[in-house]
Deep mutational scan, measured.
Amino acid sequence: LELTLRVGDKTWHFKDVDEEFVRHLEELLKRGAHEREIEEIIREWLR
């Protein structure tokens, strides 16, 4: 999967994204996660 995600003024483009990561992001967005929380999840995933 490829994913382009825009949060606030930042845009990330990922290739070979894990479906579990996408589901986790979807859940965060559904519950109205704040920009900082989403950025933290992305940084963790990139490690």
Results as ranks from 00 to 15, higher is better:
R36W: 14
L29R: 03
H34V: 08
E40G: 09
H34T: 14
K15Y: 09
G32M: 04
L5F: 13
R36H: 14
E26H: 14
E2C: 07
D16E: 10
I38H: 01
D18S: 14
E37W: 06
H34K: 14
E19G: 11
D18V: 02
T11M: 09
I41L: 10
G32N: 07
K30T: 11
D9E: 08
D16S: 15
E19D: 06
L46E: 08
K15T: 07
E19Y: 15
L25N: 00
K10I: 14
F14V: 03
R6A: 09
R6E: 09
L46D: 05
F14T: 00
E39C: 06
L3I: 15
F14C: 02
V22W: 03
L46N: 05
E2T: 10
L5K: 00
L5P: 00
G32T: 04
R31D: 09
R36T: 13
E44P: 00
T4Q: 09
L1G: 15
R31P: 02
L1Y: 15
L46I: 12
E20F: 10
L29A: 08
V22Y: 07
I38D: 00
D9M: 05
R31V: 08
R23I: 07
H13R: 07
R36I: 11
L1M: 12
H24A: 09
E27Y: 15
V17I: 09
L29M: 15
L28E: 06
L28A: 10
K10E: 05
I41Y: 15
E26S: 10
K30Y: 13
R31F: 09
H13S: 05
L46T: 05
E37L: 07
V22D: 01
I41K: 12
W12Y: 15
T4K: 13
K30H: 11
R23N: 10
L29N: 04
L46C: 05
V22N: 01
E39I: 06
L1A: 09
E44Y: 08
E39R: 04
G8D: 02
I42K: 00
E44C: 09
R31W: 10
R6Y: 04
D18N: 09
G8T: 01
V22G: 02
R31Q: 13
R36N: 14
E37M: 08
E27T: 14
A33M: 11
R6L: 10
G8Q: 02
H13C: 04
H34I: 07
V17P: 06
E26F: 15
A33Y: 12
E20N: 14
E2R: 09
E26V: 14
R47S: 08
E40A: 12
G8L: 03
R43P: 01
H24Q: 12
L5T: 01
R36G: 13
E40W: 10
K15S: 07
E39F: 07
G8Y: 02
E35Y: 12
L28K: 09
R43W: 14
L5W: 02
R31M: 12
E44W: 09
L46G: 04
H24S: 12
L29P: 01
E40Y: 10
E20D: 13
L28I: 06
E37N: 05
K30N: 10
W45G: 02
T4G: 02
L25I: 11
R31I: 08
E2K: 07
H24I: 11
V7L: 11
V7Y: 05
I42D: 00
H13M: 04
V7C: 08
F21S: 04
E19T: 12
L46A: 07
E40F: 10
R43E: 10
L28R: 08
E19R: 15
K10Y: 09
E20R: 10
D18R: 04
H13W: 06
D16H: 14
D9R: 04
D16K: 14
E2I: 10
F14H: 00
E2H: 14
T11W: 07
L3S: 02
E27A: 14
L29K: 04
I42Q: 01
L29G: 04
V22T: 03
L1W: 15
E44K: 11
K10F: 10
R43F: 12
E39N: 12
R23G: 06
L29F: 08
E44V: 07
G8N: 05
K15H: 12
G32A: 05
D18Y: 04
I42L: 05
K30I: 09
K15G: 03
V7H: 02
L46R: 05
K10M: 09
E44F: 08
G8E: 01
L1R: 12
V17W: 03
H34R: 10
E2S: 14
G8M: 03
F14E: 00
H24V: 11
G32V: 05
E35T: 12
E44Q: 10
T11D: 05
E19V: 15
T11Q: 05
V7A: 03
E20V: 14
I42H: 06
E35R: 06
T11N: 03
E35H: 12
W12T: 00
W45H: 08
V7P: 00
D16V: 13
E35D: 10
D18A: 09
A33L: 09
L46F: 13
K10W: 07
T4F: 08
F14G: 00
L5R: 00
R31L: 12
E2G: 12
G8C: 03
D9G: 09
H13Y: 15
L29I: 15
E37V: 08
H34F: 05
L25C: 08
E37R: 06
D18E: 09
D16R: 14
R47T: 08
F21M: 04
L5I: 15
L29Q: 07
V17R: 07
R47H: 11
E2N: 15
G32D: 04
T4N: 06
R31S: 12
E27M: 15
H34P: 14
F21W: 07
T11R: 02
R47Q: 09
L5H: 01
R47C: 05
L25M: 09
I42T: 01
T4Y: 09
R47K: 10
V7T: 02
I41E: 09
G32P: 04
V17Q: 10
K15D: 05
H24N: 11
K30F: 13
V22A: 04
T4V: 14
V7M: 05
F14Q: 00
D16P: 12
E37T: 07
W45E: 02
D9S: 07
H24D: 07
T4I: 15
R43K: 12
E20T: 13
E27W: 13
E26A: 13
R23Y: 08
L3H: 06
V17L: 03
I41V: 14
K15L: 06
H34A: 13
I38K: 01
K10N: 08
E35Q: 13
H24C: 04
A33V: 14
R23H: 10
D18T: 12
E26R: 15
D9L: 04
T4W: 10
F21L: 04
G8V: 01
R36D: 14
